[in-house]
Amino acid sequence: MLLITCPYCGPRPEIEFAHGGEAHIARPQDPSSLGVEDWTEFLYMRANPKGVHAERWRHLHGCARFFNALRDTTTDQFVATYKTGEPRPDLTAVTA
């Protein structure tokens, strides 16, 4: 069971959390103005990287907040967590 650091509540067991897919994919301001390809890109296309991945989590059975996390998909280790709306942390700064 992973230990996930909620930006509000601190480290908590994985079972309290729900995964929410890739982070930093903003819903377009005016979806109707988007062409099919742009809309498809927003709706379906995801990075699915091998390595550090920015993704959304929700502390569902805790403070109920969504937040973002950098997780290494090869090791399952969380590199950083940060509040929704905050920029993705610079990893070089995190590891330094």
Partner: peptide, 13 residues
Amino acid sequence: LNMMEDYLQTEWP
């Protein structure tokens, strides 16, 4: 409820 919170918290805060 989860979907409501999702849109509110992450798209329309």
